[in-house]
Nucleic acid binder design. Structure first.
Lengths: 154, 154
DNA sequence: GGCTGATTGTTATATTATAACGTTCCGTCA
DNA sequence: TGACGGAACGTTATAATATAACAATCAGCC
């Protein structure tokens, strides 16, 4: 999932993601309830990672646990990722495979792009192995400037 | 900085780190005040990343801004790193060079080891470049089991 | 229909972090 | 030396993120 074109129509992306999530949940025998679907849709509508309390506000009349439970479900089924640096969440571009999150985060516009690069994971794995360390999960988050923002912000 | 031996005497490490910090601050014309030194020492005394409020309690009669200001100072001068996944802090093993943090975090004992592996950074840089993304800072945090904990926790 | 486990609602609270403003400390320079 | 000015620290309040605990409801299944 690379950076979107500047004025790209995001609607179809959201619709596609929701449909993919439906299918993935059916495959797994998981229940994509109304709240969970609404949270997933809100996460996808935002190009930038979005925080739990922003989701809460967008949902209207919910309490924090409602949102966090939905997020936990979506995380557990690989439908979203958590960005540790930002305490925020983004839609997963490749639901269905378990995979580590590798992200490029634009510090100007906030947009996030998901990588899925084996050579990064390999490099970390090799370095870990040299210490006898056994990796279970890997966080890779690069902050910087996306192509569209590089002119404006040097 | 690799994982310490199981019963390793940590005192000398702490002393060495404090001395290195003194020198580094002198070089930079930065003031390693009493509070800052005490916070740095507490961070180093802990093998595992330690949170701001644990530091606060250890300091005794301080308020949160006191600790956060000391941490900001230590981060700014490359004397500690922040672990995003844990909202916690560890001593920097290589003060003096500006460098990204790359960490192995044991989920059993909590210990952290700092890597400094160019091939990891290179791999991310290459992947970013293919999207036209320009990296300013990079977070790499691998969770798993350190050598000493692998027997006990499968 | 009634059981059972999953899901959601609700209230309270824990944890992490910062804003705002006043005071003190410390080097510098007249 | 003493007044100035900026850095550091103290203090109070509050923002932002996250979870505990328990009650109520729902959905699938026999």
């Amino acid at each position: 999932m690379s950076f979107p074109a500047p004025h790209h129509d995001h609607g179809p992306c959201v619709a596609h993601a929701l449909q993919a999530a439906e299918e993935e949940c059916r495959r797994r025998g998981a229940r994509l309830t109304d709240i969970r679907r609404r949270v997933l849709e809100l996460v996808w509508r935002s190009h930038a990672p979005i925080g739990a309390y922003a989701l809460l506000e967008a949902l209207g009349k919910a309490a924090p646990p409602t949102v966090y439970r939905a997020l936990d479900f979506l995380l557990a089924h690989g439908l979203i990722h958590r960005i540790e640096k930002l305490n925020a969440f983004v839609g997963c571009a490749h639901p269905g495979h378990a995979h580590p999150g590798q992200f490029l985060l634009c510090r100007a516009c906030g947009a996030a792009a998901e990588l899925n690069d084996d050579s990064i994971e390999q490099a970390v794995r090799v370095a870990a192995q040299s210490q006898g360390f056994e990796i279970s999960t890997l966080v890779v988050e690069a902050e910087g400037l996306c192509p569209a923002c590089q002119g404006q912000h040097a």
